[in-house]
Nucleic acid binder design. Sequence first.
DNA 1: CGCGTTTACGTCGTTCGTAACGATA
DNA 2: TATCGTTACGAACGACGTAAACGCG
Lengths: 326, 326
Amino acid sequence: MTLTQLRYFVAIADAGLNITQAAERVHATQPGLSKQLTQLEDELGFLLFVRRGRSLEAITPEGRQILERARTILAEADNIRAFAANRRRETRGSLTLVTTHTQARYVLPAALARLKQDYPELSLHLKPVGEGEALGLIERGEADLALVSSAGDAPGGGLAVPLFRWSRVVLVPAAHRLATLARAPSLAELAEENLVSYESTNRPESSLRQAFATENLAPRVALTARDADLIKTYVRAGLGVGILAEMALLPEDRQDLVALPAPGAIPECTAYAVLPRERVLRDYSLDLLLALAPQLDRIDLRRALEGVQEPNWPTAPRWEIPAVPG
Amino acid sequence: MTLTQLRYFVAIADAGLNITQAAERVHATQPGLSKQLTQLEDELGFLLFVRRGRSLEAITPEGRQILERARTILAEADNIRAFAANRRRETRGSLTLVTTHTQARYVLPAALARLKQDYPELSLHLKPVGEGEALGLIERGEADLALVSSAGDAPGGGLAVPLFRWSRVVLVPAAHRLATLARAPSLAELAEENLVSYESTNRPESSLRQAFATENLAPRVALTARDADLIKTYVRAGLGVGILAEMALLPEDRQDLVALPAPGAIPECTAYAVLPRERVLRDYSLDLLLALAPQLDRIDLRRALEGVQEPNWPTAPRWEIPAVPG
DNA sequence: CGCGTTTACGTCGTTCGTAACGATA
DNA sequence: TATCGTTACGAACGACGTAAACGCG
């Protein structure tokens, strides 16, 4: 049993039992994986996969047991490597972020640009996902960091670090009748309009939907999208009134669009970074957090990650437009 | 980084930073370990041990971090191997027991003899320890199974499985004035005597000592030993009245010694097996438990070990002299 | 016939043990 | 001088990649 064998085994399982595809992912040849898999099976004394003919059909029950343990072994090995890489100030590395489109498009660029200055060889991977999926990816260890927002409790699935608070804005074309309102519209007024907002509005637990519900109003959601740019586009096209995160509002948008504050009944959201527990993060991951939320302290972050000290996070400030680096 | 490198690293740390000794333990040559250690250090980018001249002086702080993670990796690898060995009904293996002398000398032989019949190639290791040390060895993963007794709560440090209940007996030479008592002596009567008992009696939390204390009596302990045979020998020599576990009483002892029940105020003890958590035990470990405590169920044991089901152990029966196998 | 796995084979790298050397108390 | 770690070297093993064969849809 070697670490390579376990790595290949897990890769095959993760590639949907396709050895060829798994071989590509681990940068090795297909016969190599095939051989190592057979050797591992020989050593253990039972099959890890059910074969039909020559192709892998399923994981055996025993294989599933081994798979779990192999994952923890490989995760610990990665932890050792990450620890060592931090220790020797290694600047190369990979950072996988899962986040919503708005964060990726409007919040992260400034922070990531700054990060790239300190770590020019860093390879960044953005995984855009819906609100619900991000935490699962963290728990399964497929991502280093999730950026999610919540109007209520801190998200679970990892160590949730509050970064900043943000509000929604109401966005209408300059010619729209609400454009001259010069104040936050009421929920009742919004209920009269066709709304264009995020996909997450469709979920019953959405804080937007709940705000309407408490006043016995039902919002008329004309269009939803994950993508704040799409929302703005459709607002421009006159499909309805946009409700989106304030971060998504660019200065140039104000040329033809008018932004109003959202009704007070729609609660503020907090953006959280969710870090995988029991895992050594590379220094640049923490640097990214510090870039996003200057109120955080690196030492506190490390301590909280190691579980030695129950985190007591500083209150997250309101979002503000980041200073252009350089 | 390979499993071998991690294994060598841990071996060196466990051998007190003596590479030669570590090499013997892992059945390899000293230069081999030396080389692998250097390679691991090269790959990680920092030293795992502090050198003074050519000899290892201490573990570096980084080394300590890696050591912990290496241990979990190796433990999981062992778990995989144990799982596989069980799966293919492997009869070879090793079983390390930590227990008191009385258990090892009077309780275990029958059970181990039965076990050896089913697993002739099993290599058994008995580690005799004082009451307090056993649990630490389990927690550190240096033993597969601990056998300890307690008059009160179940011991911690692992999964405690109640095996059987036992009482102490009072042992006097046939010529002793208590020999004709034909009933349990009172604590007051015992307080008049010189006592010969287990070393654990010296500990203030000893149930024997506490029984005396509740009647405001102080026992006169003339001699303590871990070894029940020693206690019997000194009782024969007239040093005093023996108080020991009923299991330690052999039929032939009654030829020249008289055993009386212990005072009712001295509580019954329960013998527990303490199993390491988060660890796959070989089947023969469970078989040993079943041999010691027939009321147990193998399936329940496995479930409890996997943590899927909160154990609800059957009440432990009283100790009885085991039937001679064969 | 394409896709994917296994088998065969040659090469290269690595590990391991023996032996010699160096340092230390 | 005995003990312990490092360096040197040669042999053997193992891993890996290329190429070809095999099954299956």
